[in-house]
Amino acid sequence: MPERKVIVESEVGLHARPAALFVQTAAKAFIEVTVAKGAGEPVNAKSILSVLALDVRQGEAIVIRAEGEGADALLDELAAIAAAS
């Protein structure tokens, strides 16, 4: 399954505005997409509550996975959001 491993660079972590943007972008896709913190359990990347509950802070690694049509483009977009400082 296509995946991206990204270090979250934002000072606020994957919270607040970056989290909202990340989830909104994932929610627009028709395919399933998950996000996990490090080697942890993957959660639905379209769920703001699940993403916030991961509590990803600056400098921590996440793994984003998706499969299906447009998966690579979507993963690139999500990775860019997560990696943006």
């Binding site: 909202a20 909104q24 639905n44 769920s47 509550l49 699940s50």
Partner: peptide, 13 residues
């Protein structure tokens, strides 16, 4: 308020 609206529409919830 927008963040709260996203929570109410959360698919995992």
């Amino acid at each position: 308020l927008d963040a709260e609206a996203m929570m109410a529409r959360d698919p995992s919830l």
